[in-house]
Amino acid sequence: MAGEPPVPSDAASLGRILAPDGVLHGLRAAGKAALLGDLARRAARALPIDGAELLAALLRREDLGSTGVGDGVALPHARLEALARPFGILARLREPIAFDAIDEAPVDLVCLLLLPADAGGEHPNALACIARRLREPGIAAALRGARDAATLRAALCGRP
């Protein structure tokens, strides 16, 4: 539409990874393990992968080091053989939770990213893309200020 600013390429890429129903506003989580389990179950409903397999992959990645990247943001991720293209879920938590983040701050913004095991493909840099987008000035604040899932998705992806 004329007069609208162009959508950054990172935002457009994220729009292809995050389905509109893959954005969760006000999600409740009792802790890190419960959150990862919930996200794995939700992803399993949309993918041809068992939820227990997804959770195991996420926990293996967390064993290498927390995906809590600081400033209240976590980017849990895993690579999976059965996946053909990147898949993501964005969640803003109702209440921040401890996530063993590098800055020890609680997490309230979480982007689950599941990637094909093969490094090639349509979105080989999906993790870097989401990390860059969340570092852009004002994006985290816009996500925290979003009033619903559609606004949350638009704040990250540049469109509903």
Rank of each mutant, 00 (worst) to 15 (best):
I139N: 07
R92T: 06
I89W: 02
S66D: 12
D118L: 01
L55D: 12
L59F: 11
I97W: 07
H77R: 04
C111L: 15
I139T: 15
E95Q: 11
R61A: 13
G51W: 06
V69E: 04
A52S: 04
R79S: 14
H77K: 09
L55F: 14
V110D: 11
A126I: 09
A141F: 04
E104K: 08
P124M: 06
R94G: 12
L75E: 07
P116V: 05
P96F: 12
R85D: 15
I130G: 06
P116I: 10
G72D: 06
A98F: 02
R133T: 15
A140Q: 10
A105T: 08
N125Y: 05
A82D: 11
L134G: 07
G121A: 05
G121R: 00
R79Y: 10
E136C: 13
I97V: 14
F99R: 00
P137F: 02
C129W: 05
A126R: 12
G65C: 10
V73D: 02
V110S: 11
D71T: 06
I97C: 09
L134P: 03
L93S: 05
L55K: 13
L134W: 05
D118G: 05
C129V: 08
G88M: 01
V107I: 14
V69D: 00
C129H: 01
E62T: 13
P116Y: 08
R79G: 05
I102W: 07
G138L: 03
L55P: 06
V73E: 06
L127D: 09
C129F: 02
P124N: 04
A141K: 08
R135F: 10
G65S: 02
L113M: 03
A82Q: 13
P116S: 09
H77T: 06
L55Q: 15
G51D: 05
I102N: 11
P76N: 14
A74C: 14
A82W: 07
R92A: 02
L58F: 14
R133C: 10
L114P: 12
A126P: 01
A56E: 13
V69K: 10
G120R: 12
E136S: 14
I130V: 15
H123F: 14
G70L: 11
A52F: 08
D118E: 04
G72R: 08
A119I: 01
G65W: 10
I130F: 12
L112W: 11
E81S: 04
P137Q: 12
A105R: 08
V69Y: 07
G120L: 04
L93I: 12
E81V: 00
A131C: 10
A91K: 04
N125F: 05
R94A: 14
F99W: 03
